[in-house]
Nucleic acid binder design. Structure first.
Length: 600
RNA sequence: CGGGGAGUGGCGCAGUCUGGCAGCGCACCUGACUGGGGGUCAGGAGGUCGCAGGUUCAAAUCCUGUCUCCCCGACCA
């Protein structure tokens, strides 16, 4: 491609709205353009890179034996009502009306559509196992798009779905996808870790995310040196231990004006771990039932709302949780600041369908200070099991840096374990063991070898294509611009002709190299503009092609052409006759360095 | 949805408080010079000042409403 013909120009200054390096550089380099909040166009350079990402994904999917399909992006709303996920997605779902006022969904994901397709066409165990995938546009009306391409409302996802007869089959399909994902991210030049994750609106039992660790990320992951890694919404940890004590008699104590844990620990001179805190929510389940929720944790811990919602899953799944306002809490008979589980709860769910959920820390912590349900008073020596009983006891606490790792601390006998640290991350992929959630909803059945009807079990596997593009830039850039991994660069070589308008020989040599490089199988962006050297070099640095080849009068006098790798290192002066071969060699070695782990 | 910020030519910004001919830098077009890290000079083109209404002799500027975008939080494969 000749730059004089390339659509789009570099910008010297980035639009003020762009904060992330990837966003700024992709805009400045002329790779993408923003149309609306969370909605972007790809320009010629950006589109080439995106297609290279897709091609890597496609090759690795095909390598596993998965088959590519294309499902519709627009679905009848009824399809979503059948699984109940129209409500699970809620406002995130884009819904449009057709001319007959029939409601259509702009699909945010495709479990329903693929299960429908599978159910219509799979007849027997002979059709299994099968994994289908597509690379397609998804629509999600995110509450807050952010970070350039990191969180957008229209994006491209590779989504794959596996169907197996039994759990062993699902495990094999899942492992094959997991392995393919490792190869994909390695080939794309984006370092990732696999972390345990919550399944969220997708459902199912057990999922892992592929995360790129970066300050630019919006997820928080907790990590341990032992290798444990989990999204903060899922991460497990060991509660800081409190000394065992005999239960003491419960007594009321006056605590006027003491409505926070901080104030309470100061007034009574007790550590936060000797107090119980209460947090109130209104839960609304997918079937539209709703009830008040009273969450009780030790005072030194925070609520993890994802865990709490999962602990409250009933029928249609986990509820949506909304923190109660003071007014609502009072309306529900709670004395805010002095609320207490004592006298409220019962294993039967208590009054008015109230759910009292106690964190795991509560039964293990004797003689806590809790509210008295009376303005200005708390209770000392409150003991779960003696003084009150939770509806559910579950892990509902947020893991925080400094907490002890649940995995290696347990392995070390409960003591020698290490502590967790937190990092920010971008979620690039997510793999789920779905189970029979959707195949049951769509009454999907195949005959097994004995001729009996069986409901297949599913896995689903997503990759954010646009996020790989953004993450590759986050991982590979410097003050001057992007340094694309050789596997993703829009072109392999940036051919720069200096002063061709004055020295026709330079122009002729650059023209010849343009042809020769392409004949050698390399893709080339040829800067044939009449610009000063500074402008050309600055643009080359910004656009970030892996290899820059410079033709100039100076080089020509030595019979040489200059090669410079964008990733760094000294420039090489290579004899004119050898330079195309040298460029091909450098390109091949950069690509080889990115080749992923061998398939296992 | 809560909090904060911003809308002036393609990009970055000044002007708004205190109403009085819409400006600057970059980019763009023409010409000349220059020629290895965003060079110089000369001459140009390009703007309903987000939108609507109001106040005024006069509105980018004051008032009211509204839309959009960004950041933090809530939310979120």
């Amino acid at each position: 491609m000749r730059m004089t013909r390339l659509f789009g120009h570099t910008l010297r200054e980035a639009p003020a709205d762009a904060e992330l390096a990837s966003h700024r550089l992709l805009l400045r380099g002329g790779f993408v353009d923003q149309l609306a909040s969370g909605i972007y166009s790809y320009m010629p350079l950006g589109w080439r890179t995106k297609r290279r990402v897709e091609q890597i994904v496609r090759e690795e999917m095909d390598r596993t034996g998965a088959q590519e399909v294309l499902l519709p992006a627009i679905h009848p709303l009824e399809l979503w009502e059948r699984s109940g996920r129209d409500r699970a997605f809620g406002d995130t779902l884009f819904v449009v009306n057709d001319r007959r006022e029939r409601k259509l969904v702009l699909a945010p994901t495709h479990e329903e559509a693929i299960t429908r397709l599978f159910t219509d066409h799979a007849r027997s165990y002979r059709d299994l196992p099968v994994t289908l995938y597509q690379i397609q546009t998804k629509f999600r009306d995110e509450a807050r798009p952010r970070g350039g391409l990191v969180r957008v409302r229209e994006f491209t996802m590779k989504d794959a779905y596996s169907f197996d007869l039994d759990d062993a089959g699902l495990d094999a399909s899942y492992d094959a996808m997991f392995e393919a994902y490792r190869r994909i991210f390695a080939r794309a030049g984006v370092p990732t870790i696999a972390a345990e994750a919550d399944s969220g609106a997708i459902g199912g039992k057990g999922s892992q995310e592929f995360l790129f660790l970066t300050e630019a990320g919006e997820d928080t992951v907790l990590l341990c040196e032992c290798g444990y890694a989990a999204n903060a919404e899922k991460a497990e940890f060991l509660r800081p231990a409190v000394p065992a004590e005999e239960p003491l008699p419960m007594e009321e104590v006056a605590t006027p004006g003491t409505t926070t844990i901080d104030a309470l620990t100061e007034l009574l001179d007790v550590p936060a771990a000797k107090t119980a805190k209460a947090v109130f929510y209104t839960a609304t389940w997918p079937d539209e039932r709703s009830a008040p929720v009273f969450a009780v944790l030790r005072g030194d811990l925070q609520v993890n709302e994802v865990k709490l919602a999962n602990a409250l899953a009933e029928g249609g799944g986990p509820p949506q949780l909304r923190a109660m306002t003071d007014l609502e809490a009072r309306g529900a008979g709670l004395v805010t600041g002095y609320a207490s589980p004592v006298g409220l709860a019962g294993p039967d769910g208590g009054k008015a369908g109230l759910r009292v959920v106690a964190d795991l820390s509560i039964p293990d912590s004797p003689n806590l200070v809790a509210g008295a349900n009376r303005e200005g008073f708390h209770l000392r020596n409150v003991n779960h099991g003696r003084d009150w009983e939770a509806t559910v006891v579950a892990d509902i606490a947020l893991a925080e840096p400094g907490h002890r790792c649940a995995r290696c601390s347990t392995a070390a006998g409960g003591d020698g374990g290490r502590t967790l640290r937190a990092e920010r991350a971008i979620e690039l992929g997510h793999v789920f063991r779905l189970g029979r959630l959707y195949t049951e909803a769509f009454e999907s059945k195949v005959l097994d070898e004995q001729g009996a009807q069986r409901v297949p079990t599913m896995g689903c596997y997503g990759i954010g294509i646009d996020r790989i593009v953004a993450s590759a830039v986050e991982a590979h850039h410097d003050a001057d611009g992007i340094a694309w991994p050789a596997s993703l660069a829009p072109y392999d070589v940036h051919l720069v002709a200096l002063g061709a308008s004055r020295d026709a020989e330079v122009g002729a040599e650059a023209d010849a190299l343009f042809e020769e490089l392409r004949a050698a199988g390399l893709t080339v962006l040829y800067d044939d503009r009449d610009e000063s050297p500074g402008v050309k070099f600055a643009d080359a640095d910004l656009m970030g092609l892996p290899l820059r080849m410079t033709v100039s009068s100076r080089n020509r006098k030595e019979g040489a052409v200059e090669l410079q790798r964008r990733a760094g290192g000294e420039a090489e002066r290579v004899p004119r006759d050898a330079v195309v071969a040298r460029a091909a060699e450098l390109h091949a070695s950069e690509l080889a360095a990115l080749d992923g782990p061998a398939p296992s």
